[in-house]
Structures are given as C-alpha cells and as structure tokens.
Write a protein that binds this DNA or RNA. Sequence first.
DNA 1: GTCTATATGGCGATAGAC
DNA 2: GTCTATCGCCATATAGAC
Lengths: 209, 209
Amino acid sequence: MAAPKKEVDTESRILDAAHRVFLREGTSGARMQEIANEAGVNKALLHYYFQNKQRLADAVFLRVVRNLFPAVQQIFESDQPFEDKVRAFVASEFDTMDANPYMPGYVISELQQQPGRIKALLESSGPPPLDAIQGSLDKEIAAGRYHPITAADFFLTALSLILYPYAARPGVTMLTEMNGESLDAMFARRREMTAEWLLRMVRKSSSEP
Amino acid sequence: MAAPKKEVDTESRILDAAHRVFLREGTSGARMQEIANEAGVNKALLHYYFQNKQRLADAVFLRVVRNLFPAVQQIFESDQPFEDKVRAFVASEFDTMDANPYMPGYVISELQQQPGRIKALLESSGPPPLDAIQGSLDKEIAAGRYHPITAADFFLTALSLILYPYAARPGVTMLTEMNGESLDAMFARRREMTAEWLLRMVRKSSSEP
DNA sequence: GTCTATATGGCGATAGAC
DNA sequence: GTCTATCGCCATATAGAC
C-alpha cells in the first residue's frame, strides 16, 4: 500500500479488459488474444495471473453479479413511502444499466449456456430482498390501495421493464429508427416513465371497491 | 411429393438438431459434433447439406426470427376492441414462448454478439406492426381514456413483460424457489395477469382529468 | 513479472470409399 | 447420400529466456 502506483496493476488491467471482452462476446465467443490486446499485455500473462480461460471467465462473472442486489436491499429497507422506494429503485437500476449496458444480455447468455452458474450467482450476489418488498406491498394491499400481488411478481415485473430494453438493445434500435427517434431519447423517456408504469399496475383506481 | 417418407428427411433432421443445440448453447458455444450426435448422423453430412457452420447457424437464426411478428400484425389489424387485441396478443406470445422457451435468450445473445444480424432479422421477420398499434392507441388517447404513449413504448413494454421472464428463466427459478412455488405456477399466473398489467399502465383511472 | 517461442489438443472442414 | 479417416488451422496452454 505504500507508494501507490500511478497505473493500476497488471492483474486489474487484465480483469478489466476481460470484463469488457466477455460482456461483448460471451465466454465462448471471446478469445484470449483479444483480451490480451485490449489489456496491452502478452497472452501468456493472462495464464500467469488466472491459470486458464475458465477461471478468468469465472472471475468476471462473479464480479458482474456481486453488486446486483445490495442497493435494492438498502432502498427497500429504508423508511420512505413505498412509492418513493419504487422510484428510487428504478432510478438506481437505470443508473447501473447505463454504466453497464451489456450486463443484462451477458448474464442471460451465460445462465442459459451454463445453468450451473446460477448457484455461484446466488452465493455471490445474495438473495434478492423479497421480504422487504413483500412487507411494503402487503401494507398497501391491506389498506385496499393496491391490487394483490406477490413480491416475486412485482420484482420480476420491475426487472423486466428495466432490463429487457437493455438486453434487447439492437432490437430497440430498430424500433426507434422506425419512429424517427434516437435510442438515447427512448431510454431517457423510459427512465422517467417506468416507475409510474409500475405503480399504475398495482394501484387501484378510485372507483374500484 | 409422391410417396412421402415416413421419417423426415435428413436435411430437416439436421436443421432441427441444429436448432435445439444452437438455441441452448449459442452459435459460438455449439459444436458441430454435438449437432451431428443429436441428429443421429455423421459430422460430414452437416457439411454436405450446409457447407459450413456459419451457414447452418444462419439458417437456424432465420428460421427462428421468421415468425416473430406476423401473428401480431393480424391481431392488431383485426376489428376487435383494443383491449381484446392486447389480450389476444399477450396470449399468442405466451403460446409461442412456451413452445420455444430458449428463443428470447438466444436472440438476445446472437444480436449482442453479432449486431450485424439485426439486418437479417428485419428482412426476414418484417417490421413490427407499430402503425396498427399506434392507430388503436391514438383513438383511446384522443377519447381521454388512456395516458399518452407511443406505440414503440407500448410494444416494447409488452415484449419486456412477456419475454424477459423466459430469457432470465434460471434467475426466475431462483425467485420461485424462495417463494416455495413452482416455475410453472409463476408462468401460469403471469400468463393471466400480464395483459391486465399492461392495460392498467395505460388506462386513466376514473378520477383523473 | 513480462516476454518470445513452442507444444498440445480440439474443432471445422475435406477426401474418398461405398 | 452416408460413412470413415484424416487434414490443417487456430486457440489454449506451457516452457523457458530475460
């Protein structure tokens, strides 16, 4: 720790490069040579630090899923009104996705192609905070303000609305082009609208019993 | 056409096997040997019929995306009430997905790893029927019954709600296990609820101006 | 720790018998 | 059309100099 180097160390440079390449191309599509190029080092160094391709891929996967849920946990355990929690959660997820737009597609691909990794995901990310969500929801439902819904359904629906457009980004580009609109404009609008859409889905309208 | 054979011909057996293997493992993750095994033929036959791996992968991709939108087009051009169209569309998509659960994850992976394929997708699937949707939506919006929304947003939101749970199926399994519920039960419930959720998102409640 | 050079194996692809 | 046998490359992985 004494005398910190200006440049990040080689191991981190490799891991960062591997992160970018694996997320773009998937584990099986990525080449060690391309990672080495992107890291600005020789191919042999990847093996020096990470032994083989599988271990390097595992390290990237763990780093990606490690920070999936902690922010959510904090938000739903706070003491804001439920609808503010939802808005904060949606905003937080959009921020994360803008910083890692390839993440949803990557995680979907990896889990489909290597289902065994779901175990590593759970251990590394911790469970999604269903209990905290359910507690908040049940209060609204009991008060007659919301339609009944399980926390799992609400959570999955929220993730669907937020993550799918990023995962399917090339297809979304196609949609926006038909619209004469930019992809960024569409995402910006959905960032604002998604929380309200979610809330309209669960709120009872005033005329309902 | 005269004297139809009992068994499907070899080329179709190969294409069917390739379909299953590519959808599970992705184009770069799949092995020609595994496709040959699954088709019950020798590896050399794959090259006899499809020349090389890329052409075989292209044939599968085209077959997968060819039938993405036609059913949607018909539904939204019919003369039912708009909300019935939405219900029919959602039911139709769920049927398609139950028959091809790996499809969303596969398409997402392929487009992320080979963005150039979006062009082939468009030509093969035809454009999504945004105009028909927009027409139906605008009537409801002009009548003051719906919040303003673009057809692109409505369509993308619908696809998100339907397709994401299939694409993220291993993660959804994790959710249902925490719930003490089966995956099938969750999908069955969402098949019933998704259209209503969509409609609640756009309907104005009676107290709103 | 970092490099160059090389070994090893696997996979796509082909040749050729039947 | 279908098979067996084999080629040739390319990606992973290692050896060893510096």
